[in-house]
Design a protein around this nucleic acid. Structure first.
Lengths: 388, 388
DNA sequence: AATCAATACTTGACGAAGGAAATTATTACG
DNA sequence: CGTAATAATTTCCTTCGTCAAGTATTGATT
């Protein structure tokens, strides 16, 4: 069984939190290097690490051989004990639940999904219970070492209270999802906006590790952006943040459902791509898959639709780079199944509009499967264990 | 004389820093309300405040009368002793030095300026010495209670080291301005980018007080933006941040000197306004003042130039609101001498493009004289006293 | 082999920061 | 005048983290 502090918090002191977080995100580190990195004395690190080792969350690796003249005692790096605890993450979409189990290193250990026929709260919770049972009671035997569940939902979510204020795809209003999901699963639940969850996961366990500021752009039906500035996730004072999709980049562009004009999303979102592809091809029943296939087959006019979309995304990303100057930017999302058609043009738009040294900001453009979104949800629940 | 800790730092503990900062920025506050606000015990506030009172930085105001049923002991609010110490701030432009003396409440007590004939480093430093002497030795007798000087320079400035990496208007490269200015004036010097200094001043002493996130947009030859997110100034990883002027808002707009297209600055910056006004009027020697006068007199075509510029600025501000969601936004700058011509159109552009609840973000549009920029520099030096 | 220099880590004493609870101060209300 | 309510202070205590000294372990040098 898992019993540490009773309150659910793993670490008691700021120093212990800092030590655990650093080992978690920046891999094995010796106590002395942790002390230097965190501005602590090595004695403080020793003391902070001891209970974490005793509880089995950290382990001491074999001493590494040292090099250089007059080498001293070899360091014994601290690493996380990946199997000490497991975490469940579930991404809730309008028609499917995607779930994963990850270990303390955020490596995916199991995954499963369930179709949703009814996006109502009760039906979703029932399916969620089954999904979690499937994940925890299947091969692997994760149940005894699992206490926490992270949920990722699109829309306006209050992570502090676990309340889903509004989710457009699910048509949910003010659903106390944390309590409801805790009842069904018996786990400690964290609820977060899906883009923020994915951003958190990339910041702690992915390409954003070590970056003081970081941005993650998702391309799909909507175009969103998660932002980390000064080491912290940006939340937005009026409930709005990261709405890169509604930056206006073309004063003569199409009108957007939001009331703006020339929004990135109105040019490059999946519905916009399909609409334009239908117009240019003259086929009113064309789907996104058709458009991708045609463009890949060399249809120049449909290729131009993707080119225009990619450039618009690039302009939006340049706006992010010019405004907040993240150390790096990851571009992803299910819309990037067609990323081969977008990538070059995203870079073109970005490079044209990025100001000065902002062009040097590294851009990773790669598709992330939905499973990664579920992993993001689980990563948030790791975070809630470490820094509640 | 002024002698507190020798290192120049005023407060020794985080709690004392928090207490002093809160009183400084949020006006007189009782110990109990400070404790609640800062998450401290009232005992801690009492202890933290005592040395600050003894050193004369804080004072206890007369007890306020209380209301309500069974009112208890009246609170004795803590307030800053404005005259305890004075600070000099100087804004360095290409052709002028503008200087002010402010007190601890950031109220301007004296101001002066000096024309610059030579923007070279040595000449500027000589003039700076004279300006500071004028300010401190003139009426008011500020010299004995003044130890710190803040400098505001446009361009790429490293506040931590006081190095001016590059300033385009002055044509300075890697000038160790902090050391040089300290030699000339004998004061402890802080150097900051001008927009960031103004943003800091508004965040601590102006409309941004109490806001977790805040943006200040400056309109003039260039169009810039200072950003506070999660309570901290945004610096940008590649030396770029707040470049709202180079967000592309019009894919078919004019090319910008930065290489981009349809940049806000290329539409609404003073040179762009003048260029467009010359084109529409057919007068190749038209100045900005002429354009303003014509527009105010009812020239519709030149009025349209301002309208287009204002809308472009509004679109850029909407991008800021959509991305980082500041609690409020101040729009200012010397370019806003013509703010009556811009204001309505800035709001139009903003309201059209702001997403969802972001339109609720309060927008203050008002001109700030150059003296306010110097005040910003001085405010940064207050900040360096409180939180070095 | 013995010693030394260099580096990593641990230990125990100490100081300082902040909290808890009791105490004092000051008001309004009956 | 007690009593309730709120503000501030005092005393005592816990605790976190540093400091300085000591232990551990290596390569290089004698």
């Amino acid at each position: 069984m898992l019993t540490e502090t009773g309150t659910g918090a793993l670490t008691e002191t700021p120093a212990a939190t800092a030590v655990f977080t650093a080992v978690l995100t920046e891999g094995p580190l010796s106590r002395v290097s942790l002390a230097r990195r965190l501005g602590l004395s090595s004695a403080a690190v020793t003391k902070a690490a001891r209970p974490l080792i005793e509880m089995g969350y950290l382990q001491e690796l074999a001493a590494t051989e040292r090099t250089g003249p007059g080498a001293g005692r070899p360091a014994s790096p601290l690493a996380v004990q990946a199997d000490r605890e497991y975490f469940v993450g579930v991404k809730i979409t309008g028609d499917e639940l995607i779930g994963v189990v990850i270990d303390l290193c955020a490596d995916v250990r199991a995954s499963a999904h369930r179709p949703l026929t009814d996006p109502g709260v009760d039906a979703v919770l029932t399916e969620l219970g089954h999904l979690v049972d499937d994940l925890l009671d299947g091969p692997g035997g994760y149940r005894p070492r699992t206490r926490r569940l992270g949920l990722a939902v699109s829309g306006d979510v209050d992570r502090a209270t676990g309340l889903v204020r509004y989710s457009p795809f699910l048509q949910w209003h003010n659903v106390p999802l944390r309590e409801r999901a805790a009842e069904v699963t018996g786990l400690t639940v964290t609820v977060e906006n899906d883009v923020k969850a994915l951003t958190t996961a990339e910041h702690w366990f992915g390409e954003g590790v070590g970056a003081e500021s970081f941005a993650l752009v998702t391309v799909g039906t909507g175009i969103g952006c998660g932002l980390v500035v000064n080491g912290r996730l940006v939340s937005g004072s009026h409930g709005v943040a990261g709405e890169i999709g509604h930056i206006g980049v073309d004063a003569t562009g199409p009108e957007c459902h939001c009331g703006g004009r020339g929004c990135v999303e109105a040019i490059a979102g999946t519905p916009a791509i399909v609409r334009q592809a239908r117009q240019t091809s003259g086929r009113p029943d064309l789907t996104m898959d058709d458009a991708v296939a045609l463009a890949r087959a060399g249809d120049e006019r449909i290729g131009a639709v993707f080119a225009r979309g990619g450039e618009a995304i690039g302009l939006g990303i340049a706006a992010v780079a010019n405004l907040v100057g993240p150390a790096r930017i990851v571009v992803s999302g299910e819309g990037l199944a067609a990323y081969d058609l977008f990538e070059r043009h995203i870079r073109t738009g970005f490079e044209r509009q990025a100001f000065g040294a902002a062009v040097e900001c590294p851009l990773s453009i790669r598709p992330l499967p939905f499973e990664q979104w579920a992993r993001g949800a689980a990563a948030v629940s790791i975070q809630s264990l470490v820094a509640p």
